[in-house]
């Protein structure tokens, strides 16, 4: 094609023998043949999809036939448009969107002057209506927001561990002092919550047995870990994922979500990663029948930080 014919022209008023209305392909017949093959293969594939669906074939067969069918049809249609339709290029004028100054002024005048005269003369009405709508807006938010959920109150500060709660595993079996071998870890709950959502989410605790029978994590917690049983909240202080990953040689509890590492030996102080606070430790004791029980609730709120947390 000569250079002159590559200059874009407007589509309207083009004579029908203009080279720009000719197909873009150099060999349109060949392209047509290729496209018809695409259409035939595509149609066959789609028919195959129907057959696969009918006989309830595996998903990959359904997907393969559907995908191939659509793909072949698509390639054919695009090729049709790209190679067999008027090659152009065509041009279209771009009109400025902005109107004339007169039109703009008339529009602005309609709003400002007409509106102004109405509102400014009736300031009281405008004020009253505005106030009313404002109060309506605030009031309407109450049911929309307040009905959505209960108030937090102090539910985030406490768990269901009480003084004397039996330590049970997920099946509800009470843990006895001889149960766990050294180096073992178990997820435990206060008795009665092991099947509840709140128990799973808030009360979950990891119970680890270490070799040191007189194990103390830090000063003031001398009685908290009887017979080497040490219990920490399983809710990560970073974002609340269950800290279920215990590496017994490193003596680290690791959060699987963001890899905060808590040192089991010194009160689960974070040693690495984004967690800002130690995992709260649960004070335990062994009762006269040999069952593990909690001395009290955790002394801090478990889980991630929030504004009301002290």
């Amino acid at each position: 094609m000569t250079d002159e014919h590559r200059t874009p022209v407007s589509l309207s008023g083009l004579s029908s023998n203009d080279p720009r209305l000719q197909p873009a392909a150099r060999h349109p017949e060949l392209v047509e043949r290729v496209i018809s093959v695409c259409f035939i293969v595509g149609t066959l594939c789609l028919a195959g999809f129907g057959a696969c669906y009918w006989i309830d074939a595996q998903p990959w067969k359904l997907g393969a036939t559907l995908g191939a069918g659509l793909l072949f049809l698509g390639i054919g249609i695009v090729a049709w448009g790209k190679y067999l339709m008027p090659r152009g290029p065509f041009v279209e004028e771009r009109h400025t969107l902005a109107n004339s100054d007169a039109d703009r002024q008339a529009f602005a005048a309609a709003i400002v002057e007409r509106g102004g005269s109405v509102v400014q003369r009736r300031k009281l009405l405008g004020g009253l209506l505005g106030g009313g709508m404002g109060i309506f807006g605030v009031v309407v938010m109450f049911p929309l927001l307040r009905s959505l959920g209960p108030l937090p109150k102090r539910t985030l500060q406490h768990t269901d561990w009480r003084s004397g709660s039996y330590v049970v595993d997920q099946s509800g079996r009470r843990v006895e002092v001889g149960d766990l071998a050294v180096g073992s870890i178990e997820t435990v709950f206060p008795e009665g919550t092991e099947n509840s959502d709140r128990g799973q989410a808030v009360d979950q605790t990891v119970l680890i047995r270490v070799s040191n029978e007189a194990f103390t994590t830090m000063k003031g917690r001398e009685t908290w870990a009887p017979h080497g049983y040490v219990a920490y909240s399983k809710v990560c202080t970073h974002l609340g994922c269950p800290v279920g990953l215990y590496e017994q040689e490193l003596q680290l509890l690791v959060c699987p979500c963001h890899q905060s590492m808590f040192n089991v030996t010194n009160g689960a102080v974070p040693q690495f990663g984004p967690a800002p606070r130690p995992l709260p430790q649960l004070p335990l004791y062994v009762d006269s029948s040999g069952f593990l029980r909690s001395q009290s609730d955790y002394h801090q709120a478990v889980g991630p930080g929030f504004w009301e947390r002290s």
Binding site: G63, A64, G67, L70, L71, L73, G74, V78, A79
Partner: peptide, 15 residues
């Protein structure tokens, strides 16, 4: 045609 191609590729990925 492009709509068909996009759906075709997606179906193949899904398969």
């Amino acid at each position: 045609g492009f709509l068909f191609i996009v759906s075709g590729i997606t179906a193949l990925l899904g398969a």
